[in-house]
């Protein structure tokens, strides 16, 4: 399986924010997208996820077969928001995504335990702290399986211990043959990640 971008360009509000971005990710590869604010990191991720149309260039997912014909069908997307309902319990939230996204992987309880949140499945999501909410959102990546993880500032709001936990999870995902593409300006603790620098001049 291979995620390939060729001369990708993206725009926001009619303004081009980046252009000519090419990369290729194979199984077990990680790509960190870095760069100053406004350099188009989030836009790039949204283009890859299929939420925004590419202004130019192509993004394809090779070898996914019938199951994952496009990048967006093969991807987990973790955006700035957590995608959880405050009125439902953590467990209800995760089980919803597990069922909705299909290809169930871990049970929601197992996924929570991986993020050190085994105790709080029965609590309404709204009661959690910012860091806990983020960890629940990360647990969502584990309840159903996708080869590609698209992560937009995944560690925002996490403390050092949780960051380390998350780094282990990402490492395990890569060793499993997964791919990770993360927009960040903090080191994620990935040992063998290529870096894609966005920003004026660097993107070309």
């Amino acid at each position: 399986m291979r995620l390939v971008a060729q001369a990708l360009a993206g725009e926001r509000g009619g303004e081009p924010v980046f252009s000519g971005v090419s990369f290729s990710l194979g199984e077990g590869d990680a790509l960190t997208v870095t760069g100053p604010n406004g350099s188009g990191k989030s836009t790039l991720l949204r283009v890859v996820a299929g939420l925004l149309p590419a202004a130019a260039g192509t993004i394809t997912f090779e070898g996914g077969g019938e199951e994952w014909p496009t990048p967006r069908s093969a991807a987990h997307f973790l955006g700035h928001q957590n995608g959880m309902k405050t009125a439902l319990t953590v467990d209800e939230n995760l089980r919803f995504w597990r069922e909705f996204k299909g290809e169930p992987h871990l049970e929601s309880q197992e996924a929570l335990e991986m993020m050190g949140l085994g105790e709080i499945g029965h609590l309404p999501f709204g009661y959690l702290s910012t860091g806990q909410k983020r960890r629940v959102a990360i647990a969502r990546l584990l309840v159903s399986y996708r080869p590609i993880w698209l992560l937009d500032e995944p560690t925002a709001g996490l403390d050092a211990a949780s960051e380390a936990q998350f780094a282990e999870l990402m490492q395990a995902h890569l060793e499993d043959g997964g791919m990770i593409m993360a927009a960040t300006h903090l080191p994620l603790g990935l040992t063998a990640a290529t870096e894609l620098r966005m920003g004026a001049g660097a993107a070309a």
Binding site: L51, P69, F77, Q81, G83, M84
Partner: peptide, 16 residues
Amino acid sequence: REDGSLDLLLIAGQRH
């Protein structure tokens, strides 16, 4: 949209 679920629902568009 406010809590980000809408993005995830749309990404699943291939499946649903």
